[in-house]
Lab assay of single mutants.
Amino acid sequence: MATDAALRRLLRLHRTEIAVAVDSAFPLLHALADHDVVPEDKFQETLHLKEKEGCPQAFHALLSWLLTQDSTAILDFWRVLFKDYNLERYGRLQPILDSFPKDVDLSQPRKGRKPPAVPKALVPPPRLPTKRKASEEARAAAPAALTPRGTASPGSQLKAKPPKKPESSAEQQRLPLGNGIQTMSASVQRAVAMSSGDVPGARGAVEGILIQQVFESGGSKKCIQVGGEFYTPSKFEDSGSGKNKARSSSGPKPLVRAKGAQGAAPGGGEARLGQQGSVPAPLALPSDPQLHQKNEDECAVCRDGGELICCDGCPRAFHLACLSPPLREIPSGTWRCSSCLQATVQEVQPRAEEPRPQEPPVETPLPPGLRSAGEEVRGPPGEPLAGMDTTLVYKHLPAPPSAAPLPGLDSSALHPLLCVGPEGQQNLAPGARCGVCGDGTDVLRCTHCAAAFHWRCHFPAGTSRPGTGLRCRSCSGDVTPAPVEGVLAPSPARLAPGPAKDDTASHEPALH
Protein backbone atom coordinates (compact mmCIF):
# COMPACT_ATOMS: atom_id res chain seq x y z
CA MET A 1 0.00 0.00 0.00
CA ALA A 2 2.85 2.34 0.77
CA THR A 3 4.19 1.86 -2.76
CA ASP A 4 0.81 2.63 -4.32
CA ALA A 5 0.51 5.82 -2.31
CA ALA A 6 4.04 6.83 -3.25
CA LEU A 7 3.37 6.30 -6.98
CA ARG A 8 0.18 8.35 -6.79
CA ARG A 9 1.99 11.14 -4.94
CA LEU A 10 4.84 11.16 -7.51
CA LEU A 11 2.33 11.38 -10.38
CA ARG A 12 0.67 14.40 -8.78
CA LEU A 13 4.11 15.95 -8.16
CA HIS A 14 5.46 15.49 -11.72
CA ARG A 15 2.15 15.91 -13.58
CA THR A 16 3.02 19.31 -15.06
CA GLU A 17 6.62 18.32 -15.90
CA ILE A 18 5.40 15.24 -17.77
CA ALA A 19 2.77 17.25 -19.66
CA VAL A 20 5.35 19.83 -20.75
CA ALA A 21 7.89 17.14 -21.73
CA VAL A 22 5.38 15.31 -23.96
CA ASP A 23 5.24 17.45 -27.10
CA SER A 24 3.68 14.75 -29.28
CA ALA A 25 0.88 12.28 -28.70
CA PHE A 26 2.82 9.49 -30.38
CA PRO A 27 4.21 7.19 -29.07
CA LEU A 28 3.19 7.73 -25.42
CA LEU A 29 -0.58 8.03 -25.86
CA HIS A 30 -0.72 5.09 -28.24
CA ALA A 31 1.40 2.94 -25.90
CA LEU A 32 -0.96 3.73 -23.00
CA ALA A 33 -3.88 2.60 -25.14
CA ASP A 34 -2.03 -0.58 -26.19
CA HIS A 35 -1.37 -1.53 -22.55
CA ASP A 36 -5.01 -0.88 -21.52
CA VAL A 37 -4.05 2.04 -19.30
CA VAL A 38 -6.25 4.46 -21.27
CA PRO A 39 -9.60 3.23 -22.64
CA GLU A 40 -10.65 3.92 -26.19
CA ASP A 41 -13.02 6.76 -25.38
CA LYS A 42 -10.37 8.55 -23.31
CA PHE A 43 -7.87 8.00 -26.12
CA GLN A 44 -10.15 9.72 -28.66
CA GLU A 45 -10.98 12.49 -26.21
CA THR A 46 -7.28 13.23 -25.63
CA LEU A 47 -6.59 13.36 -29.37
CA HIS A 48 -9.49 15.76 -29.87
CA LEU A 49 -8.29 17.99 -27.02
CA LYS A 50 -4.76 17.94 -28.45
CA GLU A 51 -6.03 19.31 -31.76
CA LYS A 52 -8.00 21.97 -29.96
CA GLU A 53 -5.70 23.22 -27.16
CA GLY A 54 -2.33 21.57 -27.76
CA CYS A 55 -0.45 18.50 -26.60
CA PRO A 56 0.69 19.68 -23.11
CA GLN A 57 -2.84 20.72 -22.07
CA ALA A 58 -4.30 17.47 -23.39
CA PHE A 59 -1.81 15.32 -21.45
CA HIS A 60 -2.27 17.37 -18.27
CA ALA A 61 -5.98 16.65 -18.43
CA LEU A 62 -5.24 12.96 -19.09
CA LEU A 63 -2.93 12.74 -16.05
CA SER A 64 -5.54 14.47 -13.88
CA TRP A 65 -8.04 11.82 -14.94
CA LEU A 66 -5.45 9.08 -14.25
CA LEU A 67 -5.11 10.27 -10.62
CA THR A 68 -8.72 9.24 -10.10
CA GLN A 69 -8.05 5.64 -11.19
CA ASP A 70 -6.88 2.70 -9.11
CA SER A 71 -3.26 1.99 -8.15
CA THR A 72 -2.86 -0.67 -10.85
CA ALA A 73 -3.50 1.87 -13.64
CA ILE A 74 -1.01 4.31 -12.08
CA LEU A 75 1.66 1.58 -11.81
CA ASP A 76 1.12 0.61 -15.45
CA PHE A 77 1.40 4.26 -16.48
CA TRP A 78 4.85 4.62 -14.87
CA ARG A 79 6.03 1.42 -16.56
CA VAL A 80 4.93 2.63 -20.00
CA LEU A 81 6.30 6.13 -19.43
CA PHE A 82 9.84 4.93 -18.71
CA LYS A 83 10.15 2.60 -21.68
CA ASP A 84 13.21 3.13 -23.86
CA TYR A 85 11.41 4.49 -26.91
CA ASN A 86 9.58 7.09 -24.78
CA LEU A 87 12.82 8.19 -23.12
CA GLU A 88 14.40 8.60 -26.56
CA ARG A 89 11.44 10.53 -27.98
CA TYR A 90 10.88 12.80 -24.98
CA GLY A 91 14.28 13.90 -23.70
CA ARG A 92 12.85 15.86 -20.74
CA LEU A 93 11.62 12.63 -19.13
CA GLN A 94 15.18 11.61 -18.22
CA PRO A 95 15.48 14.02 -15.23
CA ILE A 96 12.18 12.66 -13.88
CA LEU A 97 13.54 9.12 -14.11
CA ASP A 98 16.80 10.16 -12.44
CA SER A 99 14.93 11.72 -9.51
CA PHE A 100 12.66 8.70 -9.09
CA PRO A 101 13.05 7.09 -5.64
CA LYS A 102 15.21 4.00 -5.63
CA ASP A 103 12.99 2.16 -3.17
CA VAL A 104 9.98 2.28 -5.51
CA ASP A 105 9.87 -0.90 -7.57
CA LEU A 106 8.09 -0.68 -10.92
CA SER A 107 8.66 -4.33 -11.80
CA GLN A 108 6.02 -5.86 -9.53
CA PRO A 109 3.18 -7.63 -11.37
CA ARG A 110 -0.27 -6.17 -11.66
CA LYS A 111 -2.71 -7.24 -8.98
CA GLY A 112 -5.20 -9.88 -9.92
CA ARG A 113 -3.37 -10.78 -13.13
CA LYS A 114 -0.62 -12.99 -11.78
CA PRO A 115 -0.25 -16.05 -14.00
CA PRO A 116 -0.95 -19.38 -12.31
CA ALA A 117 2.10 -21.27 -11.15
CA VAL A 118 2.90 -24.31 -13.23
CA PRO A 119 4.25 -27.36 -11.40
CA LYS A 120 7.80 -28.19 -12.32
CA ALA A 121 6.89 -31.76 -13.08
CA LEU A 122 4.58 -30.64 -15.88
CA VAL A 123 7.18 -28.48 -17.62
CA PRO A 124 8.66 -30.50 -20.46
CA PRO A 125 12.47 -30.49 -20.62
CA PRO A 126 13.99 -28.51 -23.48
CA ARG A 127 14.74 -30.62 -26.52
CA LEU A 128 18.29 -30.70 -27.69
CA PRO A 129 18.79 -29.82 -31.35
CA THR A 130 19.49 -32.86 -33.44
CA LYS A 131 20.78 -33.45 -36.90
CA ARG A 132 18.11 -35.93 -37.91
CA LYS A 133 16.90 -33.63 -40.66
CA ALA A 134 20.38 -33.31 -42.11
CA SER A 135 20.78 -37.09 -41.92
CA GLU A 136 17.49 -37.62 -43.75
CA GLU A 137 18.50 -35.13 -46.43
CA ALA A 138 21.77 -37.00 -46.88
CA ARG A 139 19.87 -40.27 -47.23
CA ALA A 140 17.63 -38.76 -49.90
CA ALA A 141 20.57 -37.26 -51.78
CA ALA A 142 22.62 -40.48 -51.94
CA PRO A 143 20.31 -42.46 -54.29
CA ALA A 144 20.04 -39.45 -56.59
CA ALA A 145 23.81 -39.29 -56.86
CA LEU A 146 23.95 -42.95 -57.91
CA THR A 147 21.32 -42.56 -60.64
CA PRO A 148 22.91 -42.91 -64.12
CA ARG A 149 22.73 -39.78 -66.25
CA GLY A 150 22.71 -41.56 -69.60
CA THR A 151 23.26 -44.81 -71.43
CA ALA A 152 26.72 -46.33 -71.46
CA SER A 153 28.60 -46.90 -74.72
CA PRO A 154 28.21 -50.24 -76.56
CA GLY A 155 31.75 -51.22 -75.62
CA SER A 156 31.01 -50.91 -71.93
CA GLN A 157 29.31 -53.91 -70.36
CA LEU A 158 28.77 -52.25 -66.98
CA LYS A 159 25.16 -51.07 -66.73
CA ALA A 160 23.45 -50.94 -63.36
CA LYS A 161 20.50 -49.06 -61.97
CA PRO A 162 20.10 -48.89 -58.22
CA PRO A 163 16.66 -49.98 -57.01
CA LYS A 164 14.55 -47.35 -55.34
CA LYS A 165 14.85 -47.45 -51.59
CA PRO A 166 12.24 -46.04 -49.20
CA GLU A 167 13.58 -43.73 -46.52
CA SER A 168 11.97 -45.71 -43.72
CA SER A 169 13.99 -48.81 -44.57
CA ALA A 170 17.12 -49.24 -42.48
CA GLU A 171 18.55 -52.18 -44.42
CA GLN A 172 21.49 -51.74 -46.72
CA GLN A 173 20.82 -51.91 -50.43
CA ARG A 174 23.67 -53.43 -52.41
CA LEU A 175 24.26 -53.37 -56.13
CA PRO A 176 26.01 -56.21 -57.97
CA LEU A 177 28.87 -54.49 -59.75
CA GLY A 178 31.04 -57.51 -60.48
CA ASN A 179 34.42 -58.69 -59.17
CA GLY A 180 33.25 -58.77 -55.57
CA ILE A 181 32.81 -55.01 -55.21
CA GLN A 182 29.81 -53.84 -53.24
CA THR A 183 28.41 -50.36 -52.99
CA MET A 184 27.69 -48.51 -49.80
CA SER A 185 24.36 -47.94 -48.09
CA ALA A 186 22.17 -44.94 -48.78
CA SER A 187 23.63 -43.06 -45.81
CA VAL A 188 27.15 -43.19 -47.23
CA GLN A 189 28.45 -39.85 -48.45
CA ARG A 190 31.44 -40.96 -50.51
CA ALA A 191 32.83 -44.34 -51.57
CA VAL A 192 36.15 -45.24 -53.14
CA ALA A 193 37.09 -48.75 -54.23
CA MET A 194 40.15 -50.14 -52.44
CA SER A 195 42.22 -53.17 -53.24
CA SER A 196 42.06 -55.95 -50.68
CA GLY A 197 45.78 -56.61 -50.94
CA ASP A 198 46.47 -53.29 -49.18
CA VAL A 199 44.30 -54.11 -46.15
CA PRO A 200 46.07 -56.21 -43.50
CA GLY A 201 44.09 -59.30 -42.59
CA ALA A 202 41.85 -59.31 -45.67
CA ARG A 203 41.39 -62.64 -47.42
CA GLY A 204 40.43 -63.59 -50.94
CA ALA A 205 39.29 -61.12 -53.54
CA VAL A 206 37.25 -59.09 -51.07
CA GLU A 207 37.58 -55.39 -51.69
CA GLY A 208 36.73 -52.78 -49.10
CA ILE A 209 35.00 -49.49 -49.65
CA LEU A 210 36.15 -46.31 -47.94
CA ILE A 211 33.03 -44.60 -46.70
CA GLN A 212 31.81 -41.92 -44.40
CA GLN A 213 28.94 -43.29 -42.35
CA VAL A 214 26.32 -40.86 -41.01
CA PHE A 215 24.67 -42.16 -37.87
CA GLU A 216 21.23 -41.38 -36.55
CA SER A 217 22.65 -39.30 -33.70
CA GLY A 218 23.90 -36.72 -36.15
CA GLY A 219 27.60 -37.50 -35.83
CA SER A 220 29.81 -38.78 -38.60
CA LYS A 221 32.60 -41.35 -38.61
CA LYS A 222 34.93 -42.43 -41.38
CA CYS A 223 35.51 -46.17 -41.67
CA ILE A 224 36.26 -48.99 -44.08
CA GLN A 225 33.59 -51.47 -45.13
CA VAL A 226 34.94 -54.95 -45.83
CA GLY A 227 32.10 -57.31 -46.54
CA GLY A 228 29.37 -56.54 -44.05
CA GLU A 229 31.59 -55.10 -41.31
CA PHE A 230 32.99 -51.61 -40.73
CA TYR A 231 36.55 -50.94 -39.55
CA THR A 232 37.91 -47.69 -38.19
CA PRO A 233 40.99 -46.18 -39.89
CA SER A 234 43.19 -46.98 -36.87
CA LYS A 235 43.06 -50.68 -37.76
CA PHE A 236 44.71 -50.04 -41.10
CA GLU A 237 47.67 -47.97 -39.95
CA ASP A 238 50.89 -49.30 -41.37
CA SER A 239 53.91 -47.34 -40.19
CA GLY A 240 56.41 -49.65 -41.89
CA SER A 241 54.95 -49.39 -45.37
CA GLY A 242 57.51 -47.82 -47.68
CA LYS A 243 55.44 -47.92 -50.85
CA ASN A 244 53.06 -45.11 -49.98
CA LYS A 245 52.87 -42.86 -52.99
CA ALA A 246 50.70 -40.08 -51.63
CA ARG A 247 49.03 -37.41 -53.66
CA SER A 248 49.85 -33.90 -52.51
CA SER A 249 47.60 -33.03 -49.50
CA SER A 250 45.55 -35.92 -50.70
CA GLY A 251 42.45 -37.69 -49.72
CA PRO A 252 41.45 -40.64 -51.94
CA LYS A 253 39.79 -39.71 -55.20
CA PRO A 254 38.18 -42.11 -57.71
CA LEU A 255 40.14 -41.93 -60.92
CA VAL A 256 38.34 -44.66 -62.89
CA ARG A 257 34.61 -45.14 -62.76
CA ALA A 258 31.80 -46.45 -64.91
CA LYS A 259 29.04 -44.10 -65.93
CA GLY A 260 26.11 -44.42 -63.56
CA ALA A 261 27.92 -46.12 -60.68
CA GLN A 262 31.40 -46.50 -59.29
CA GLY A 263 33.05 -49.87 -59.56
CA ALA A 264 35.63 -51.98 -61.30
CA ALA A 265 36.12 -52.02 -65.05
CA PRO A 266 34.76 -55.05 -66.93
CA GLY A 267 37.08 -57.91 -67.61
CA GLY A 268 38.75 -57.91 -64.21
CA GLY A 269 40.09 -54.38 -64.46
CA GLU A 270 40.91 -53.14 -60.99
CA ALA A 271 39.81 -49.69 -59.92
CA ARG A 272 42.59 -47.83 -58.15
CA LEU A 273 42.92 -45.37 -55.34
CA GLY A 274 44.52 -41.94 -55.62
CA GLN A 275 47.40 -43.36 -53.57
CA GLN A 276 48.78 -46.87 -53.72
CA GLY A 277 49.73 -49.01 -50.76
CA SER A 278 48.08 -49.16 -47.38
CA VAL A 279 45.24 -46.85 -46.45
CA PRO A 280 46.63 -43.85 -44.51
CA ALA A 281 45.44 -43.31 -40.98
CA PRO A 282 44.42 -39.63 -41.26
CA LEU A 283 41.41 -39.43 -43.55
CA ALA A 284 40.91 -35.67 -43.24
CA LEU A 285 39.58 -33.94 -46.30
CA PRO A 286 42.28 -32.17 -48.33
CA SER A 287 42.56 -28.42 -48.31
CA ASP A 288 43.20 -28.22 -52.05
CA PRO A 289 39.89 -27.31 -53.73
CA GLN A 290 40.92 -29.18 -56.90
CA LEU A 291 40.80 -32.52 -55.09
CA HIS A 292 37.18 -31.90 -54.08
CA GLN A 293 36.11 -31.48 -57.68
CA LYS A 294 33.57 -33.74 -59.31
CA ASN A 295 34.78 -34.96 -62.66
CA GLU A 296 32.47 -35.28 -65.62
CA ASP A 297 30.66 -38.53 -66.37
CA GLU A 298 31.42 -38.49 -70.08
CA CYS A 299 34.55 -38.31 -72.21
CA ALA A 300 35.65 -34.77 -73.05
CA VAL A 301 36.61 -35.90 -76.61
CA CYS A 302 33.78 -38.15 -77.81
CA ARG A 303 31.18 -37.04 -75.21
CA ASP A 304 30.38 -40.70 -74.42
CA GLY A 305 30.41 -42.64 -71.15
CA GLY A 306 32.08 -45.82 -70.08
CA GLU A 307 35.42 -46.46 -68.42
CA LEU A 308 36.99 -43.01 -67.94
CA ILE A 309 40.23 -41.70 -66.49
CA CYS A 310 39.76 -38.47 -64.53
CA CYS A 311 42.19 -35.55 -64.69
CA ASP A 312 43.57 -34.34 -61.35
CA GLY A 313 43.85 -30.75 -62.58
CA CYS A 314 40.42 -30.13 -64.11
CA PRO A 315 36.93 -31.74 -64.08
CA ARG A 316 37.37 -33.44 -67.45
CA ALA A 317 37.51 -37.21 -67.99
CA PHE A 318 38.71 -39.23 -70.99
CA HIS A 319 38.67 -42.69 -72.52
CA LEU A 320 42.12 -44.24 -72.66
CA ALA A 321 41.72 -44.67 -76.43
CA CYS A 322 40.63 -41.03 -76.96
CA LEU A 323 43.86 -39.59 -75.57
CA SER A 324 46.59 -38.43 -77.91
CA PRO A 325 48.68 -40.55 -77.77
CA PRO A 326 46.30 -43.23 -76.42
CA LEU A 327 47.11 -45.03 -73.19
CA ARG A 328 47.03 -48.79 -72.78
CA GLU A 329 46.76 -48.84 -69.01
CA ILE A 330 46.02 -46.46 -66.19
CA PRO A 331 49.18 -44.58 -65.10
CA SER A 332 50.11 -44.59 -61.44
CA GLY A 333 50.18 -41.46 -59.31
CA THR A 334 48.71 -38.10 -60.27
CA TRP A 335 47.64 -37.76 -63.89
CA ARG A 336 46.83 -34.54 -65.74
CA CYS A 337 45.51 -34.03 -69.24
CA SER A 338 47.44 -32.25 -71.98
CA SER A 339 45.55 -28.99 -71.47
CA CYS A 340 46.58 -28.79 -67.81
CA LEU A 341 50.18 -29.68 -68.65
CA GLN A 342 50.30 -27.00 -71.36
CA ALA A 343 48.91 -24.39 -68.97
CA THR A 344 51.57 -25.33 -66.42
CA VAL A 345 54.34 -24.91 -69.01
CA GLN A 346 52.97 -21.51 -70.06
CA GLU A 347 53.07 -20.37 -66.45
CA VAL A 348 56.69 -21.46 -66.03
CA GLN A 349 58.04 -19.94 -69.27
CA PRO A 350 57.27 -16.26 -68.52
CA ARG A 351 59.02 -16.63 -65.19
CA ALA A 352 62.16 -17.93 -66.89
CA GLU A 353 62.13 -15.05 -69.39
CA GLU A 354 61.96 -12.33 -66.78
CA PRO A 355 65.12 -10.14 -66.90
CA ARG A 356 67.43 -10.41 -63.96
CA PRO A 357 67.53 -7.31 -61.79
CA GLN A 358 70.60 -5.16 -62.21
CA GLU A 359 73.14 -5.55 -59.47
CA PRO A 360 73.77 -2.43 -57.40
CA PRO A 361 77.21 -0.82 -57.72
CA VAL A 362 79.88 -2.31 -55.48
CA GLU A 363 80.74 -0.11 -52.56
CA THR A 364 84.30 -0.08 -51.21
CA PRO A 365 85.05 1.68 -47.92
CA LEU A 366 87.95 4.14 -48.04
CA PRO A 367 90.33 4.59 -45.11
CA PRO A 368 89.78 7.65 -42.92
CA GLY A 369 91.24 10.88 -44.23
CA LEU A 370 90.99 10.06 -47.94
CA ARG A 371 88.33 11.52 -50.20
CA SER A 372 87.87 11.89 -53.90
CA ALA A 373 88.35 15.13 -55.75
CA GLY A 374 84.63 15.33 -56.50
CA GLU A 375 83.84 15.32 -52.77
CA GLU A 376 86.30 18.14 -52.24
CA VAL A 377 84.56 20.30 -54.82
CA ARG A 378 81.04 19.56 -53.53
CA GLY A 379 81.67 20.91 -50.05
CA PRO A 380 80.25 24.33 -49.11
CA PRO A 381 82.80 27.11 -49.63
CA GLY A 382 84.35 28.61 -46.56
CA GLU A 383 83.30 25.76 -44.20
CA PRO A 384 85.44 22.90 -42.93
CA LEU A 385 84.04 19.42 -43.53
CA ALA A 386 82.80 17.71 -40.37
CA GLY A 387 83.40 14.08 -39.41
CA MET A 388 86.73 13.53 -41.17
CA ASP A 389 87.52 10.35 -39.17
CA THR A 390 84.41 8.53 -40.37
CA THR A 391 84.80 5.85 -43.03
CA LEU A 392 83.76 7.12 -46.46
CA VAL A 393 82.19 4.92 -49.12
CA TYR A 394 83.51 5.10 -52.65
CA LYS A 395 81.31 3.64 -55.40
CA HIS A 396 82.95 1.95 -58.36
CA LEU A 397 81.04 3.36 -61.27
CA PRO A 398 81.44 2.19 -64.88
CA ALA A 399 84.38 3.79 -66.64
CA PRO A 400 83.34 6.66 -68.95
CA PRO A 401 84.18 6.42 -72.65
CA SER A 402 87.61 7.64 -73.62
CA ALA A 403 87.65 11.33 -74.44
CA ALA A 404 90.06 13.46 -76.42
CA PRO A 405 92.93 15.07 -74.47
CA LEU A 406 92.31 18.45 -72.99
CA PRO A 407 93.31 21.36 -75.21
CA GLY A 408 96.12 23.61 -74.17
CA LEU A 409 95.22 26.42 -71.80
CA ASP A 410 96.70 29.87 -71.60
CA SER A 411 98.03 31.11 -68.33
CA SER A 412 95.25 33.69 -68.25
CA ALA A 413 92.65 30.91 -68.15
CA LEU A 414 94.14 29.66 -64.88
CA HIS A 415 93.98 33.04 -63.25
CA PRO A 416 91.08 32.13 -60.91
CA LEU A 417 93.23 29.36 -59.41
CA LEU A 418 95.85 31.66 -57.98
CA CYS A 419 95.89 35.19 -56.77
CA VAL A 420 99.13 37.12 -57.12
CA GLY A 421 99.96 39.41 -54.25
CA PRO A 422 101.76 42.71 -54.46
CA GLU A 423 105.14 40.96 -54.06
CA GLY A 424 104.37 38.48 -56.82
CA GLN A 425 103.63 35.69 -54.27
CA GLN A 426 100.97 33.09 -55.08
CA ASN A 427 97.91 33.45 -52.86
CA LEU A 428 95.06 30.99 -52.48
CA ALA A 429 91.63 31.57 -53.92
CA PRO A 430 88.77 31.91 -51.38
CA GLY A 431 87.40 28.58 -50.21
CA ALA A 432 90.59 26.54 -50.77
CA ARG A 433 90.91 23.62 -48.30
CA CYS A 434 93.42 20.94 -47.47
CA GLY A 435 92.59 17.64 -49.15
CA VAL A 436 93.47 15.62 -46.00
CA CYS A 437 91.89 17.43 -43.06
CA GLY A 438 89.44 19.62 -44.98
CA ASP A 439 90.50 22.79 -43.13
CA GLY A 440 91.08 25.98 -45.09
CA THR A 441 93.12 27.82 -42.46
CA ASP A 442 96.83 28.51 -43.25
CA VAL A 443 96.90 26.24 -46.26
CA LEU A 444 99.78 26.19 -48.73
CA ARG A 445 99.65 25.97 -52.50
CA CYS A 446 101.61 23.29 -54.34
CA THR A 447 103.83 24.92 -56.98
CA HIS A 448 103.55 21.83 -59.15
CA CYS A 449 99.81 20.85 -59.18
CA ALA A 450 98.30 24.00 -57.58
CA ALA A 451 96.57 21.91 -54.85
CA ALA A 452 95.96 23.34 -51.37
CA PHE A 453 97.55 21.42 -48.49
CA HIS A 454 98.95 21.65 -44.97
CA TRP A 455 102.59 20.76 -44.54
CA ARG A 456 101.82 18.94 -41.28
CA CYS A 457 99.12 16.84 -42.99
CA HIS A 458 101.23 15.76 -45.96
CA PHE A 459 104.53 15.39 -44.08
CA PRO A 460 103.66 14.34 -40.52
CA ALA A 461 107.15 12.92 -39.92
CA GLY A 462 108.45 16.42 -39.19
CA THR A 463 110.31 17.07 -42.43
CA SER A 464 111.53 20.64 -42.51
CA ARG A 465 109.70 22.87 -44.93
CA PRO A 466 111.87 24.43 -47.66
CA GLY A 467 111.62 28.15 -48.14
CA THR A 468 110.68 28.11 -51.82
CA GLY A 469 109.24 25.62 -54.30
CA LEU A 470 106.66 24.03 -51.95
CA ARG A 471 105.21 20.79 -53.24
CA CYS A 472 102.55 18.49 -51.85
CA ARG A 473 103.20 14.87 -50.94
CA SER A 474 101.96 13.66 -54.33
CA CYS A 475 104.30 15.90 -56.29
CA SER A 476 107.33 15.69 -54.00
CA GLY A 477 108.54 12.50 -55.73
CA ASP A 478 108.12 13.92 -59.26
CA VAL A 479 111.40 14.36 -61.15
CA THR A 480 110.04 17.33 -63.07
CA PRO A 481 111.73 20.49 -61.76
CA ALA A 482 109.52 22.91 -59.88
CA PRO A 483 108.56 26.06 -61.75
CA VAL A 484 110.24 29.30 -60.95
CA GLU A 485 108.65 31.25 -58.14
CA GLY A 486 106.34 33.94 -59.39
CA VAL A 487 104.85 32.00 -62.31
CA LEU A 488 101.06 32.14 -62.18
CA ALA A 489 100.36 28.57 -63.19
CA PRO A 490 102.07 25.40 -64.32
CA SER A 491 102.52 24.82 -68.03
CA PRO A 492 99.48 23.50 -69.88
CA ALA A 493 101.27 20.27 -70.71
CA ARG A 494 101.12 19.33 -67.03
CA LEU A 495 97.32 19.36 -67.13
CA ALA A 496 97.05 16.61 -69.74
CA PRO A 497 95.84 13.29 -68.28
CA GLY A 498 98.52 10.73 -67.75
CA PRO A 499 99.20 7.60 -65.73
CA ALA A 500 99.14 8.17 -62.02
CA LYS A 501 100.77 6.24 -59.22
CA ASP A 502 98.77 4.15 -56.79
CA ASP A 503 99.29 6.51 -53.87
CA THR A 504 98.17 9.57 -55.85
CA ALA A 505 94.99 8.18 -57.39
CA SER A 506 92.76 10.24 -55.14
CA HIS A 507 94.56 13.58 -55.72
CA GLU A 508 93.70 14.97 -59.10
CA PRO A 509 94.09 18.62 -60.10
CA ALA A 510 91.05 20.41 -58.72
CA LEU A 511 89.82 23.81 -59.81
CA HIS A 512 88.91 26.19 -56.96
Rank of each mutant, 00 (worst) to 15 (best):
A2T: 03
L128R: 05
E207Y: 02
V37C: 00
G155H: 15
A33Y: 03
L158T: 03
K159T: 11
I96L: 05
P115N: 10
Q57E: 06
Q57C: 01
K245Y: 13
V188I: 10
T68G: 08
D76M: 15
I96C: 01
R190F: 00
A31V: 01
T68Y: 04
P129R: 04
F82G: 04
A140P: 15
A144K: 03
N244R: 05
P109L: 07
D23L: 00
E270V: 14
R132I: 01
R113Q: 12
Q212H: 15
I224D: 08
V188G: 04
Q172K: 08
A25V: 10
S195D: 07
G240Q: 02
P124R: 07
A261W: 14
A193W: 00
T232Y: 07
F215H: 07
A121D: 08
L62W: 03
N86Q: 00
L146N: 03
F236M: 00
F82D: 03
L122M: 11
E17F: 01
A61P: 00
G227T: 00
L177Y: 15
P115V: 13
G228Y: 04
R15F: 02
V214L: 04
C223N: 04
D105T: 05
D23Y: 01
K114R: 07
S153W: 14
Q57V: 06
L273H: 03
G228W: 00
Q182S: 11
A193I: 03
A134E: 00
S169K: 15
S248T: 09
D198I: 09
L177D: 03
C223V: 09
E237Q: 10
S107C: 12
S99D: 03
P166M: 14
G269P: 14
E137N: 02
G242R: 05
H30P: 01
D105C: 07
K131R: 00
M184S: 04
A121H: 02
K133R: 14
K42R: 00
E136D: 05
A31F: 01
T151Y: 14
G208D: 03
S156V: 12
W65V: 01
L11Y: 00
P154M: 01
I74N: 00
L66W: 02
V22N: 01
S196Q: 11
R203P: 10
F100P: 10
R257M: 05
F77Y: 02
Q213V: 00
P116E: 08
K111Q: 01
R113F: 12
K235Q: 10
V199Y: 14
I96D: 01
G155D: 03
A144D: 03
L175N: 03
F230L: 07
L177P: 04
K243H: 10
E136I: 07
P162A: 07
Q44S: 04
E167Y: 15
E51A: 02
P166D: 10
R190D: 03
L66C: 00
D41P: 02
V192D: 05
G180T: 08
R272H: 04
P129A: 06
E229W: 01
L62A: 01
N86I: 02
P166H: 15
L175F: 12
F215W: 08
D103P: 01
H30M: 08
P166K: 01
A145K: 08
L273M: 13
D70Q: 04
A134N: 15
G91P: 04
S250W: 09
S239A: 13
E45Q: 12
F215T: 01
D84P: 06
A271Q: 06
S220W: 00
P27K: 02
K131N: 02
S99E: 02
R247Y: 06
E88W: 07
P115Q: 10
V188Q: 07
S250Y: 13
I96A: 01
G201T: 09
D23C: 01
S185M: 00
G54L: 01
G251F: 13
L28V: 02
R139E: 09
C55A: 00
L97V: 04
K222N: 06
V199Q: 07
D70A: 01
A265T: 10
A271M: 14
S71F: 03
W78N: 00
R203I: 13
E40S: 02
A19T: 01
R8Q: 00
K159L: 12
P148S: 13
A138P: 08
R92Q: 04
